[in-house]
Design a protein around this nucleic acid. Sequence first.
DNA 1: CGTTCGCTTGAGGCCGTTCAAGCGACGTGG
DNA 2: CCACGTCGCTTGAACGGCCTCAAGCGAACG
Lengths: 221, 221
Amino acid sequence: MSKRELIKNTPFFSELNSQAVSSLEKIIRQANYNKNDILFFAGEPAKYLFFVESGLVELIKSSPDGKEQLIRTVNFGETFAEAAMFAGEDYPVTAIVRSKSSIMSISKENFLEFVRSNPEVSLSIMGAMSKLLRHLNTLVTNLSLTSVASRLAQFLLQRSRETGSRSFELGIKKRELAFKLGTISETLSRNFKKMRATGIINVTNNTINIIDITALRDLAE
Amino acid sequence: MSKRELIKNTPFFSELNSQAVSSLEKIIRQANYNKNDILFFAGEPAKYLFFVESGLVELIKSSPDGKEQLIRTVNFGETFAEAAMFAGEDYPVTAIVRSKSSIMSISKENFLEFVRSNPEVSLSIMGAMSKLLRHLNTLVTNLSLTSVASRLAQFLLQRSRETGSRSFELGIKKRELAFKLGTISETLSRNFKKMRATGIINVTNNTINIIDITALRDLAE
DNA sequence: CGTTCGCTTGAGGCCGTTCAAGCGACGTGG
DNA sequence: CCACGTCGCTTGAACGGCCTCAAGCGAACG
């Protein structure tokens, strides 16, 4: 796909007129990455805005003693490091590529200039930022007010909704799910065990079977 | 102060030309509130953007079982509920007035229209949102990766920086400080005790004396 | 003088962690 | 084809941080 097509295909820029697309085309850069590539480390000066054209990226914050917290997973079609364009000088998180990805980037200066001459994209950006704010909001809430069991219940309900079935595959390794939920695999394992013991779900390898969805909803609060 | 002056005095709108100020004047509403007044509850439909002209507001999320988490304190000169303008239909948090406040508000529709016809304010909004994103980012990090002791150390260092002295008043009640740090007064008390015992600080009523600032920095990581 | 408020302290318990061990599935090289 | 390593997951034991509940205590105040 040509760079121009890539731009037009991204919901973020889909409403731009062709002149704007042209000017964007000139300042945007595209590159391919492999699993475990690092785009930037937390603390580095923030120079670029990124945009995931295809693939998957995770934004992670880690503490000096090696503990890690997933802040956000960036799916294709989404931007990240928007905030770094308008405030602060450093990336606050580390960005790790989790699967083969095509990623576009724009330098801070070019991006700000583009926004100034195409103010209509502001609305898209503010929309994206707002979604992010909500995401972080619920993340804070989850971390401070809800238990692992509750977070797990929420995740299972979400998956059930997505697949439209009460029986589904997890789709990710349990250790990764643990990470997503802000815990470790041992704790996740024990939580699965408890849910199985109380007859709420059935777990066989990677497939989940929701038995008592009401109890699961209660758990999720 | 007249409404027009209020608008001009707020950093958020300070760069507007007088025509824009006039149109803003027509759609903005001002009201006074007292301590413990509630501006909106979490879950209510988000109709207004708010702006604190003077006073103090706290944004709080509470769980069904009564636990509360402070998400953000809004100082005078700052807006809140910006995100609600661009994404989602409900306020995700509850807004409580903490001291006598003068607060301005704009309805969602009027605000969006104003932004469309005055795209230059977009940059201010995006800047504010970016700051917020950073704030939530560190909040998540603190809650998940750092201990109460570390958060307390960070707070003390910040106060020390603000006052430019190693000896300063807390300025808030300890139970409120505990809330700010995402914990309760008992735990805070024990942490103060430990810091005193290890000779890092000295605590007399509400005044703190930093003795070993290096150790304090270590604690804050 | 008694009550309330802000804070402290202790005892106990829970949740989630670390550390350690075990187990089945799977793959690879002898 | 088996022996052995690795991987993903589970389970147990112990520990630690923070919370809850309960009590106590000085200061402020009516």
